[in-house]
Every structure is written in C-alpha cells, then in structure tokens.
Design a protein around this nucleic acid. Structure first.
Length: 213
DNA sequence: TCATTAAATTGTT
DNA sequence: AACAATTTAATGA
C-alpha cells in the first residue's frame, strides 16, 4: 500500500511496542504520568481504582482488541485508573508523542479515537445501570454483554476466554454466584459455558436481560 | 504420538 | 470456604 495513509500507519506500527504482563501485574497506576496509549493483544485486564476506605472498585474488564488511556493521553495527564492483569497478558503500547502525532496527521485515527470515546461513554452509562441492579443474574448478563462489545473489543469474537473466577472479580460477586448465573444464562440459550471461556449465542438476549426476573 | 501426572477450572455443598 | 469431578497442559518414554 502506498496511499498517503500508509506513512502514518507505518509509523504507528513501527513504534508500537509489545510487552508481556504476568498475572496481577500493573500496566499502569493512578498518578503516574502517561507514557503510552495501551491496547490488549491477548489476555484480560481489569480497570479499577481504590477509594478512601482502601476498597477496590472495578470499573470494567479489558479483553483482547481493547484500547484504553486515550483520554488521559490526549490531555497528557496522569493515569486516573489502575490497570492490572487478571492473567498473563500481552499488551501493546503506543508512545504518547506518537499518539499525538497521529492525532495531528491522520483523520482516520481521529475518527477511530472519537468512536472509541463515544462507545466507551455508552458503556459507562450502561455500567451505572448495571450497578443499580440487584439481581446477580442480570448483572452478570450485562457485564458479559459489555465485554462482547464488538466496537471496543474487536479481538474477542464469539468466544471470550475468561474463567468464572476472573468474571467474579470483574462483576464483584462470588464465583459460586457467577457460576449459578452462567448456568441460568446458558439454560436460556444466551450463552454456552465452556472450559475456561464463554461462547455467546445471543448477544441481544444478554443485553435485554433487564426487565424480567 | 501416547500415557501418565500435575495444574487449572468447574460444579456443588 | 471447601470438596470432588472434569478438562487442559506438561512431561517423558
């Protein structure tokens, strides 16, 4: 490809760094200055922060194909969340300077970032709804649905590699309760429970698992 | 490649 | 939180 876009794309690819993170390792911590815009190649990350009581509050999981930190990178601030690996993961990092260079030179990249921000806004609004739901089955269903977001997490596909323990950490429930919820979701035909992962059969059903029950 | 063993994950109480 | 059952990964012949 030798379109005008190729040069910008090439620079991004050239400067993209890949690193492996072990389980429970931090990719970035609150308060640290931004160095990279991150993307998940493989594995599973957790975005969280600690409140005054020392309790950890989880905001969302980041499965393969997901990017994060663009808001902070744009403003060149310090990270506002902790990003921790729930299991051995492979992470890509694009330096902030390159990130800004792309913003200045590529309309396509701007579109991507804008779309990313917009999509995530929708996800966080949905997350507020989820938090207000008391029914664990629904919480699990909606949390799963957001992990299967094809725009934010194109790397996920139809099978999400996640253990029930990891999902429990994300949703904030016990593994037993998550297991129970997954069983009932599987019975309703929305998903299929597999060893070490989940297969989505009906994403719409997961999303709309709201009113009843 | 196959059989054995260890480790991880799940289902259940 | 603990247990047994099941699945996968690792090991070595």
């Amino acid at each position: 490809m030798d379109s005008p876009l190729a040069a910008e794309r090439q620079r991004a690819v050239d400067e993209l760094k890949i690193a492996d993170a072990d389980t429970s390792e931090y990719i970035c911590r609150i308060g640290r200055p931004v160095t990279y815009w991150f993307g998940v190649v493989d594995g599973l990350l957790k975005m969280s922060s600690d409140n005054a009581d020392g309790q950890t509050m989880t905001f969302t999981g980041v499965p393969p194909g997901g990017w994060f930190g663009e808001g902070t990178a744009m403003k060149r601030e310090t990270y506002r969340y902790n990003i921790q690996a729930l299991r051995k993961s492979r992470v890509a990092g694009l330096h902030v300077d390159t990130f800004h260079w792309l913003l200045d030179h590529s309309i396509g990249f701007n579109r991507f970032v804008m779309n990313q921000l917009n999509e995530r806004l929708g996800q966080f609004i949905a997350a507020r709804e989820i938090d207000r739901m008391t029914n664990p089955d629904i919480r699990v269903a909606r949390s799963l649905a957001s992990l299967f977001n094809p725009v934010l997490y194109p790397g996920v596909g139809e099978v999400l590699r996640i253990t029930q323990q990891e999902l429990a950490y994300l949703v904030g429930l016990s593994r037993q309760r998550v297991n129970e919820a997954l069983t009932s979701l599987a019975a309703s035909g929305a998903i299929k429970v597999e060893y070490g992962g989940l297969r989505v059969l009906d994403l719409g059903a997961l999303r709309s698992q709201v009113t009843f029950r």
